[in-house]
Design a protein around this nucleic acid. Structure first.
Length: 583
RNA sequence: CGGGGCGUAGCGCAGCUUGGUUAGCGCGCCAGUUUUGGGAACUGGAGGUCGAGAGUUCAAAUCUCUCCGCCCCGACCA
C-alpha cells in the first residue's frame, strides 16, 4: 500500500472526547472515528488490525475443533422470551412494520441453542463447538473509552455442547487453550481470574484480564499462590478472628440528627468508618434480612445471595425498612430489631465498641457489642474483597490491580438447554439436556487493549502479528533519485516476499512522515534517506527505537529476519502460556 | 438513573459574566514561491444554521425557558 493512496486521517491534536490513552491514539492515528455515543467507524487502518486479530482468533478456534458459523444480528423476541431474557435492559428492542417485537443480538445463547435443539438428536453428533465473529449490540448504560466499551462492538462468541460434565471440562480446556494462545499471539499478557458469571448464569467462569490502570474491573491477586479473582467474585480467606481485647464500654444511644450515610455519621461522631457497622435491609423473596458489614466495606450482593441459598435479593423498599426499624431509612441497626434474620460479615465478629443505627430516627448507638447488646444469627463471607484481605486458598495477602476484560469463558451447564428443551438421546437410551459452555472474546475491545498497554509518547506500538502494516518504508525525499529508487526497490522486494508493507512516498516533509509512522506504530520502519546515495538504508524497530544501517542489497533479507524473529517471540509466548497452564 | 461539565469552521479553543460593527485565534485544508532527517516559512484564499426551538429586546453566540447531543464520576455491566 502506498501512503498517498491510503485513507488515514491523522490528527495532531487530541480530540476532547478521549480520556484513555488507547482511545486518544486510535483517534489521532485515524483508526477509528466516533459516530454516536459508543458507536464507532473502523477506518481502514483500524479495520485492518481488527481483521488480523480475527484471523488469529479463527486459526486458534479452528485448531481446537471450533466450527465457524454466522447467526443473525436481528432476532425475533420469542427466543429470548423463552428464557426470560427479553426483559434485560441492555437489549435494544425494535418493532417491525406489523408491530412485531425484535431485538438486536447482544449474545446468542438462545439462538445457538435453538439451532442445536432443531438438528442435533444423538450423542453421536457430540461434542460440538460452534462459534461466530459478529457485531453485538448492547444498550450500555455508560459507554466509555472509545472502543473499550461500545454499544456496538465486535465479539467472538463460541458455544460448546457436550453429553456430560467431563466432556464439558475437556471442551472448556480446549477453549482455554484457544483463548490463551490468541491473546498471546496478539501480544497481550493476560491474567486469568475467577469471575462471577452474572446474567449469563452458570457454574464456573473465568475472565481474561489485561492488567492496566485504566481498566474498569478490579482484580485481586495473591502473590503467594497465584489465586486471582475479579473483585465481584473474590472470596475472602478466614483469618482467625481475634476478639478485641478492649474493655467493653456502656452502650449509649446518641443523637445524630440527619446523619444517614456512613460519611455523615462518621463526620458527626468523629469516628472512623472502621468503627461503624452498617446495617442493610434486604428483601430476600419472602424474608427480610438485616445484613451487617463494617462501615468502610461494600456488600457483595452475589455473596449474600449465595449465603441465603440462592434467593433473589434486592434492597428493601423504604416502607419495609420503616416498618421493621420504626425509623426513617438511614438509622437501621441490629439492636432491638425484631422480625428480620441478622446475618453478618465475618469481619464484624472481631469488632467491639462500634457504632450502629439506633432504629430511631436521628439516633445511633455507640459502644455496641455483639452478644451483650444483640445476637447474630449467622456469619458469612459477605463483603467485596479488597487489597489486604486474606487469600481464600492460602491465606496470603491479596493485592489489587485494575484489569480490562478481553475474554470470558463459562461452564454454562444446562441452564439454556433445559430452559429451551434442547435434548439429545444418550447411549443409554435416555433423553438428556446438552451440557453447554460459552466463551466470549472482545475482538474490538482488543483493538484498544493492545495499544492501551503498548504505546509511548510518540504513539502506538503494535505487535507484528496485528500491526496495520508489518513494515513501513519511509521515503524521505521523493525528489531524490537514489532515495526514490531504494524505497521502491525495497517496497517491491518486500511485497514479493509476502510482507505487508506500507510505502510512505507522500509529498510531505520528513518530520511529518516520521511522526505519522510512529503514531501508527508499525513494528519495523525502513528509512530511505541520505544514506541511499551510498547504497544504504536505515532500519528501525518501533518498540526499541534501535537503528541500524544496512546495505540496500541486504535490506530485504535483514527485514525478513527481523520479522521472523518478532513472530517467533509471539509464538514462544503462546506456547509458554499454554504450558504454564498444564504445568 | 444520580452528580459534574461541555456544545462556536475538520481538530483544539477564545468570545458569553457586563447584549451592540462584518464572530475571532492556533492547527489542518486549497493555490503559489522557497524548503526537505523529527509535525517548515512567507503570500493569498476557502470554510460557520455559534447544538435545536421558543421567548425577552430596537438589537442575542451572549439573557430566560424547553428540548437534543456529547464527555467525565458514580450506579449498572453477556
Amino acid at each position: 500500500m502506498r501512503a498517498s493512496q491510503l485513507f488515514f486521517p491523522t490528527l495532531r491534536e487530541v480530540p476532547a472526547e478521549a480520556e484513555m490513552i488507547s482511545h486518544k491514539l486510535l483517534l489521532r492515528a485515524g483508526f477509528i472515528r466516533r459516530v454516536g455515543a459508543g458507536i464507532y467507524d473502523y477506518l481502514p487502518l483500524g479495520y485492518k488490525v481488527l481483521k488480523k486479530i480475527e484471523k488469529i482468533a479463527r486459526e486458534e478456534m479452528d485448531a481446537q475443533g471450533g466450527q465457524e458459523l454466522l447467526m443473525p444480528a436481528l432476532l425475533p423476541a420469542e427466543l429470548y422470551q423463552e428464557t426470560g431474557r427479553w426483559g434485560l435492559d441492555v437489549l435494544f428492542r425494535i418493532k417491525d412494520r406489523y408491530d412485531r417485537d425484535y431485538l438486536l443480538g447482544f449474545t446468542h445463547e438462545e439462538v445457538i441453542t435453538d439451532i442445536v435443539r432443531r438438528d442435533v438428536r444423538s450423542y453421536r453428533e457430540l461434542p460440538l463447538n460452534l462459534y461466530q465473529i459478529q457485531t453485538k449490540e448492547r444498550d450500555e448504560p455508560r459507554p466509555r473509552g472509545g472502543v473499550v466499551r461500545g454499544r456496538e462492538f465486535i465479539m467472538l462468541d463460541s458455544y460448546t455442547f457436550d453429553r456430560n460434565w467431563e466432556d464439558l471440562d475437556r471442551a472448556y480446556e480446549r477453549m482455554y487453550v484457544a483463548f490463551s494462545r490468541t491473546f498471546a499471539r496478539c501480544g497481550l499478557d493476560t491474567l486469568v481470574v475467577e469471575a462471577d458469571s452474572g446474567a449469563i448464569g452458570g457454574k464456573d467462569s473465568q475472565e481474561y484480564m489485561v492488567i492496566a490502570d485504566s481498566g474498569e474491573d478490579t482484580v485481586l491477586l495473591c502473590a503467594e499462590c497465584g489465586y486471582a479473582a475479579n473483585a465481584e467474585k473474590c472470596e475472602i480467606g478466614r483469618i482467625d478472628v481475634k476478639k478485641s481485647e478492649q474493655e467493653l464500654h456502656a452502650l449509649e444511644l446518641v443523637d445524630t440528627p440527619d446523619a444517614r450515610t456512613i460519611e455523615q455519621v462518621t463526620s458527626f461522631l468523629k469516628k472512623s468508618p472502621k468503627k461503624l457497622v452498617k446495617t442493610l435491609i434486604y428483601q430476600a423473596e419472602d424474608e427480610v434480612v438485616a445484613v451487617l458489614v463494617r462501615g468502610d466495606r461494600e456488600l457483595n450482593e452475589a455473596k449474600l445471595m449465595r449465603a441465603l441459598g440462592g434467593k433473589d435479593i434486592e434492597m428493601a423498599e423504604a416502607d419495609v425498612i420503616e416498618k421493621l426499624t420504626g425509623a426513617e431509612v438511614g438509622f437501621a441497626g441490629p439492636i432491638g430489631l425484631n422480625g428480620a434474620r441478622i446475618i453478618a460479615d465475618h469481619e464484624v465478629e472481631g469488632m467491639s465498641n462500634f457504632v450502629v443505627g439506633g432504629n430511631k430516627t436521628d439516633a445511633h448507638y455507640i459502644n455496641a457489642n455483639i452478644g451483650r447488646d444483640f445476637g447474630i444469627d449467622e456469619y458469612a463471607d459477605l463483603r467485596v474483597a479488597s487489597k489486604g484481605d486474606a487469600c481464600p486458598k492460602c491465606n496470603g495477602i491479596l493485592r489489587e490491580h485494575r484489569g480490562m476484560e478481553v475474554g470470558h469463558i463459562f461452564k454454562l451447564g444446562t441452564i439454556y438447554s433445559e430452559g429451551m428443551g434442547a435434548k439429545f438421546l444418550d447411549d443409554d437410551g435416555k433423553e438428556k439436556s446438552f451440557i453447554m459452555g460459552c466463551y466470549g472474546m472482545g475482538i474490538s475491545r482488543m483493538l484498544a487493549a493492545i495499544p492501551e498497554v503498548n504505546s509511548d509518547s510518540d504513539g502506538m506500538i503494535w505487535p507484528i502479528s496485528v500491526a496495520p502494516f508489518e513494515v513501513a518504508v519511509i521515503l524521505l525525499n521523493s525528489g531524490d533519485e537514489a532515495q526514490c529508487g531504494a524505497a521502491i526497490r525495497l517496497y517491491e522486494e518486500l511485497q514479493q516476499a509476502g510482507v505487508d508493507v506500507l510505502l510512505d512516498e507522500r509529498d510531505e516533509r520528513p518530520g511529518v512522515k516520521f511522526k505519522d509512522a510512529d503514531l501508527i506504530g508499525c513494528p519495523i520502519q525502513v528509512v530511505a534517506g541520505r544514506l541511499a546515495g551510498e547504497g544504504k538504508v536505515e532500519l528501525r524497530t518501533r518498540a526499541s527505537k534501535d537503528k541500524e544501517e544496512v546495505a540496500l542489497d541486504d535490506a530485504t533479507q535483514r527485514i525478513l529476519e527481523l520479522r521472523r524473529e518478532l513472530y517467533s517471540r509471539l509464538e514462544d509466548k503462546a506456547q509458554e502460556v499454554v504450558f504454564a497452564k498444564k504445568g
